[in-house]
Design a protein around this nucleic acid. Structure first.
Length: 581
RNA sequence: GCCGACGUAGCUCAGUGGUUAGAGCACCCGCCUGUCGAGCGGGUGGUCGAGGGUUCGAUUCCCUUCGCCGGCGCCA
């Protein structure tokens, strides 16, 4: 090594030692006769002092330098308690500029906010910033912790192909042309789902992988076209076994990275209960504000809008104090989400009288009983949604989150976990057919195994999601391992035998040879790291993330290809057999 | 695909239908021996995202377009 110590590790006990350091000029304070420089390396920052000012004068921000000097206690009164190294400084006797830095496109400074585009274009500079570097380091530790927990439990880390066949998730595939077979294409995996099931058939019993996955869908703050899953599958297990494992992993992560002791077992909430109480399948349990079903309460109302399959409400504590403009703002908020609006009633802070545009449509009895029915107090506002049950609950669920934000009900220091269990097997598509909510290999639970056809809309699966502070951080299921059940599911989904054989015949083939009962879970690893890091963008925990539209501001990818590449790749080749849509 | 916000110096932002578009930081030069987001003085730096329109005159108003961010749709 060309250095003897790491800058951030120097302490008072090093006083008197001669050390050689290497790092970057983080900041310079040039007083003419004496110059202070904050020297930064991967471990932190230490102040170095130049008495001979000539050479220090030429140094600029982010020059990469090597210095030799003597560690000494700082003069009385000049200590900096803000810095771990603040008790000492290194007086430089020898300086070598390892490389110079051009003027920076943006300051490497925690105090200055810089636009994301500039940061990503020069991500290698962005990552020199302490906060950003910490996110990346945290992720590395998260990987190590997961491997440790799984290794102890005798899981095998097994890689699966990234050039593969389209798997049955619902998203659009990224496709790769195949030079050796013009007209045929690989798909990049949306997850290693089928491969991990094949590994179970192969007797690998306990598999995991930190797997890159690809989905060609639009972006969000917590979605990238390529992302990472901690992907896990086990044989001979029940749902409880997977949940226990999930809690062990999450427990280890939060203990070591967030200093939080997980209270296992975590609460389990059924999917339907979550929708009824929180209007979400990933409820944020850091605050209460629950939905109230008022369908029965308003039965027989003259108000047309409330003559619906479902009428629900959510209370905003103190919401009556909102200005007319703020209350109108909720209407715009609801319309932006595709709703007609958000009916509301405010309860007078003094009298508790129910007022508002909707109040005049409601009977005296309904108005006077409302506060009790929804659990509201004088001074609160009550928001209503009426219509189709699921959509109305989702609107109220979104309102619940917005209420918590606006009324400052979120304890930012809290961790609230839960499992959402008993997810439905199927849901109706727009054209009236059934589709798998999870994926078509998800097992019905015991209760529905023999009769899910009787009421597909009510049938429940052995499927579970783990939720933290309103983020779905992982999810999985027990898989179908019986051929007859799998065939019945395909039949319900309208997948013919020929289609099934064509799409995933290799899996069905494998399942002819004594497949073990198995199940698994996948953690959205970027999201897990994001949540632990306490940031609100997945891009913070990805070393080189893409920006909107899949553009990489650093490399400029994607780029057009040359005619030669196009020809060789076989992009335009016609497949030998026509493929059905 | 839809909705909303934003786009002015390298960075973060202010500003205006009318003379030469500003500030802080960065950068360059100088001063300065105890700073720690050092300080002081001077200087360089602008296609006001792009195109079109209205106007005597547009960075400012209008339209289109591009980029970016957030959300909806989409993504089990």
């Amino acid at each position: 090594m060309i250095r003897t110590h790491q800058a951030g590790t120097l302490r008072a006990e090093h006083a008197g030692q001669t050390v050689t350091l290497a790092g970057w000029v983080a900041r310079r304070r040039d007083h003419g006769g004496v110059t202070f420089i904050d020297l930064r390396d991967g471990s932190g920052v230490v102040q170095i002092v130049f008495r001979s000012t000539e050479e220090a004068h030429a140094l600029r921000n982010e020059f990469c330098v090597k210095v030799t000097g003597t560690v000494g206690a700082r003069p009385e009164g000049n200590e900096n308690p803000e810095l771990p190294t603040g008790a000492i400084e290194v007086t430089v006797t020898d300086l070598e500029v390892l490389s110079e830095a051009a003027p920076l496109p943006f300051p490497i400074d925690e105090h200055v906010t810089v636009g994301e585009e500039a940061r990503l274009r020069h991500r290698y500079l962005d990552l020199r910033r302490d906060t950003q570097a910490r996110y990346i380091k945290l992720r590395s530790r998260a990987n190590a912790i997961a491997r440790e927990v799984l290794g102890e439990r005798e899981f095998l880390e097994i890689e699966t192909p990234t050039l593969t066949r389209s798997t049955p998730e619902g998203a659009r595939d990224f496709l790769v042309p195949v030079r050796l077979q013009p007209g045929s294409w690989y798909a990049l995996p949306q997850s290693p789902q089928l491969f991990k099931q094949l590994l179970m058939v192969a007797g690998m019993e306990r598999y995991y992988q930190i797997a890159r996955c690809y989905r060609d869908e639009d972006f969000r703050a917590d979605r990238q076209p390529e992302f990472t899953q901690l992907d896990i599958e086990m044989s001979f297990v029940t749902q409880d076994d997977i949940i226990e494992l999930g809690e062990a992993i999450v427990g280890a992560l939060w203990k070591e990275l967030a200093g939080y002791e997980l209270q296992a077992p975590l609460p389990r909430i059924t999917y339907h209960e979550a929708m009824d109480r929180y209007g979400s399948d990933k409820p944020d349990l850091r605050y209460s504000v629950e939905l109230k079903d008022l369908t029965a309460y308003f039965a027989g109302t003259d108000f047309r809008v409330f003559q619906a399959d479902y009428v629900g409400a959510v209370v905003m504590p103190g919401g009556a104090a909102q200005t007319r403009k703020e209350l109108d703002g909720w209407q715009d908020w609801a319309k932006a989400r595709g709703a007609r609006g958000l009916a509301y009633v405010v309860l007078d802070a003094e009298t508790g009288e129910a007022r508002g545009p909707v109040a005049k449509n409601l009977s005296e009895a309904h108005l006077t009983g409302l506060a009790d029915a929804v659990g509201a107090k004088p001074g609160d506002a009550v928001f209503f949604a009426a219509g189709a049950r699921h959509a109305s609950q989702e609107l109220l669920g979104a309102a619940r989150i917005e209420i918590a934000k606006r009324a400052n009900l979120i304890d930012e220091s809290a961790w609230a976990f839960c499992w959402i269990v008993d997810a439905p097997m199927f849901e109706k598509t727009d054209d009236g057919a059934w589709t798998a909510v999870h994926h078509p290999f998800t097992s019905p639970n015991e209760e529905w195994l023999d009769r899910f056809e009787e009421a597909p809309d009510k049938a429940l699966a052995y499927a579970y999601d783990i939720v933290c502070n309103g983020n779905e951080i992982g999810g999985g299921s027990i898989r179908i391992h019986r051929g007859d059940v799998q065939r019945r599911v395909f039949t319900l989904l309208g997948i013919t035998e020929a289609e099934a054989k064509d799409k995933f015949g290799f899996l069905l083939d494998a399942f002819q040879y004594g497949p073990p009962p198995h199940g698994g879970i996948a953690f959205g690893w970027d999201r897990v790291c994001m949540v632990i890091a306490g940031t609100d963008s997945i891009r913070d925990v990805i070393a080189f993330p893409k920006s909107g539209n899949g553009f990489d501001p650093l490399t400029g990818a994607p780029t057009p290809i040359t005619g030669q590449q196009r020809k060789e790749a076989g992009v335009d080749a016609k497949p030998k057999e026509a493929v059905k849509a």
